[in-house]
């Protein structure tokens, strides 16, 4: 394992020191490992809190700022944060309008956020509503599993819902919007290489030079199948078709198209993939209202990419375009 770290046990704490120094507009509660906004917030705004295991940067800490999250809880690498962190975050961001928790659907995350919401309500009286993202179509049968994993849609949701909260919508409206976004988005990813968790010191899974893991999870979870290495055009097909098959993206619908790098894949390749994704969408008569290409929800050093399509009406596109100022996404501000 070759990594720029001091010690696997302190990697998250060390990175939080760097994040705080790199972004003067952010604050970090180091004891609770919470990144939160240090700029002036709109009074009475619904608070937006997310979090999860570390190793997916810029998600979530890199999405804290105007028009997106108010706070993010950083767990250990690939490990859900604990309720104490979410409670600390809740207290930091509540301004009387309640708090929305954005939770990716993993057993640990869901249960820890659930306990946090119960405890925060009991301890502080703050109203907390949770929304779970579960957009990964690689998990086919959710009756017999922990359900679909939360992946790329989380990024789009945090942006869109962040804009709505900034607009002044109330907690119920913001939560409803979050569910709408999750309901209209689907994702699928593939890995060319494994990631290596610092504490483990070796790759999570073995994979040959001539194969790829189709439907991989962002923690290196197994996907749908091992398939032979393919061209970018074929990869686009393998990713887009299951996404389209899962939600009735009709001809004439517009989408926000998001090609995400898993951390070890150069931008050059993501652009090649994006073009192939666009070609397939063109063939289906699906218009692309907005695009996002880059490394936004990563899996440490894994080579690979995912495609997320979010069926977007005028409301969602308008909120997408609203100003945002975070380390990971920034425009109009």
């Amino acid at each position: 394992m070759k990594k720029i770290i001091n010690d696997p046990d302190t990697v998250v704490a060390d990175a939080l020191l760097g994040i705080e120094e790199a972004y003067p507009q952010l604050r970090v509660d180091h004891e609770n490992k919470v990144v939160y906004r240090g700029d002036e917030r709109r009074p009475g705004k619904v608070g937006l809190v997310s979090g999860g295991g570390s190793g997916h940067e810029p998600l979530h800490g890199g999405f804290v700022g105007l028009g997106m999250l108010d706070a993010a809880c950083a767990g250990e690498v690939f490990t859900s944060p604990v309720p104490d962190q979410m409670i600390a975050a809740t207290k930091l961001v509540d301004d009387g309008a309640g708090v929305l928790q954005i939770v990716k659907n993993y057993t640990g995350d869901v249960m820890n956020f659930e306990m946090a919401a119960e405890m925060a309500a009991a301890e502080t009286g703050v109203e907390v509503v949770s929304v779970v993202t579960d957009d990964d179509v690689a998990v086919q049968d959710s009756t017999f599993t922990a359900g679909r994993r939360g992946v790329g849609v989380t990024v789009l949701l945090e942006k869109i819902v962040g804009a709505a909260a900034e607009e002044g919508r109330d907690l119920a409206a913001v939560a409803e919007l979050a569910r709408k976004v999750n309901g209209n988005g689907r994702s699928m990813g593939l890995a060319l290489t494994s990631c290596t968790v610092p504490a483990a010191g070796k790759p999570t899974f073995e994979i040959g030079e001539d194969e790829m893991e189709l439907g991989v999870g962002i923690h290196g979870e197994p996907g749908r199948e091992r398939v032979p290495m393919a061209s970018a055009k074929e990869m686009a097909q393998l990713l887009v078709e299951p996404v389209l098959a899962d939600l009735p993206f009709g001809s004439g619908d517009g989408v926000i198209a998001f090609v995400n790098g898993l951390g070890g894949t150069p931008l050059l390749e993501l652009y090649v993939l994006y073009h192939e994704v666009r070609s397939i969408l063109d063939q289906h008569g699906i218009g692309v209202a907005r695009s996002l290409v880059g490394n936004y929800i990563t899996s440490l050093d894994m080579a690979g990419a995912s495609v997320t399509l979010l069926k977007a009406d005028d409301e969602l596109v308008g909120l997408w375009d609203a100003p945002v100022s975070t380390p990971g996404l920034r425009w109009g501000a």
Partner: peptide, 15 residues
């Protein structure tokens, strides 16, 4: 346990 374990087993053993 709730405050130190995280993951799935933290809330489960904690509860």
């Amino acid at each position: 346990l709730v405050s130190t374990v995280g993951g799935a087993s933290g809330p489960l053993y904690g509860t």
